[in-house]
């Protein structure tokens, strides 16, 4: 059974992302565990692909560091098995890695192995609903969730096609473009949340969130969760460049995670009743 729903049971979910193996396997284990200590309700684990077309410079660099450190799908699964955390885990990667894994073509072997090591769901940025049939089937077979990304430009029939297939949560992309921390959190988010109000699935907002205040604003605006990647990957990158110890970097990640989680909780109190979302 997927544990994803647990993340949304007690108020807004804080969902951090890290590229697994960035900058190396051992440090990465400590970093992910630090995120849980900092209050993560669910963790997105990035399995690096050589051509990450949906990522901005921050996560691209993380992907390069991880691949240079020898990360592979097989190592990724070992990592998840070794990881000592209790929160639900979602694997974020690109479709070719899912498609190529194992002895038979197609996504089934990857999903089977992921389920075995304790992955609860998947986000695949280059797999639109139109091409997702085989992966959705494999997820159903192994009781996993398949999260889809909804962009500010996603409307009408496209939105319905996605919402027919989504499970776990919907990843609401706060603005156009690629991943990356931003100064402003777009007001496109509110409009996206309005469009999604009729569907009874948690809405987690990502792309550009980097402070507790952003997190509070997003949750106050109606999000059920916040997804933060680049702001955390920045901490890893900086520590790596400065030659800081993994323990120091892990502490910083925990502190940042707590700031974001606290922000999300504050956001609940700041919510104003919204007639359309009742």
């Amino acid at each position: 059974m997927s544990r994803v729903p647990e993340a949304f049971e007690d108020g807004p979910a804080f969902i951090p992302y890290l590229a697994v193996g960035d900058p190396d396997y051992e440090s990465s284990l400590e970093y992910v565990e630090a995120l849980e200590r900092g209050g993560a309700d669910l963790i997105e684990l990035g399995l690096p692909f050589s051509e990450p077309i949906a990522e901005g410079p921050t996560i691209q660099s993380a992907v390069v560091r991880s691949l240079e450190g020898g990360m592979t799908p097989t190592r990724f699964f070992e990592f998840v098995e070794e990881l000592d955390v209790d929160v639900p885990l979602v694997c974020m990667t690109y479709y070719n890695l899912i498609y190529q894994y194992g002895d038979e073509p197609g996504p089934r072997p990857f999903v089977e192995k992921a389920a075995e090591v304790g992955i609860d769901g998947f986000v695949v940025p280059d797999l639109p609903a139109e091409e997702a049939g085989p992966l959705r089937e494999a997820c159903d077979e192994f009781d996993r969730d398949l999260v889809f990304i909804v962009a500010p430009t996603t409307r009408g029939e496209r939105l319905e096609r996605i919402m027919d297939q989504v499970s776990g949560y919907v990843y609401v992309q706060a603005r156009l473009g690629v991943t990356g921390a931003q100064e402003d959190v777009s007001d496109q988010t509110g409009q996206s949340l309005d469009r999604l109000a009729q569907w009874d699935v948690p809405k987690a907002v990502g792309f550009g969130i980097k402070t507790g205040e952003h997190a509070a604003n997003i949750v106050a605006g109606g999000a059920d969760g916040i997804i933060v990647g680049s702001a955390l990957v920045d901490i890893v990158a900086e520590g790596h460049e400065n030659g800081d110890s993994a323990a120091e970097v892990a502490d910083r990640l925990e502190t940042k995670a707590r700031e974001l989680k606290d922000g999300a909780l504050r956001g609940v109190e700041q919510r104003v009743p919204h007639p359309e979302r009742q």
Partner: peptide
């Protein structure tokens, strides 16, 4: 073939 692209590009592709 097909259309394996991020969701943000799908409206432009359509």
């Amino acid at each position: 073939g097909g259309q394996y692209v991020p969701e943000a590009l799908m409206p432009a592709i359509e």
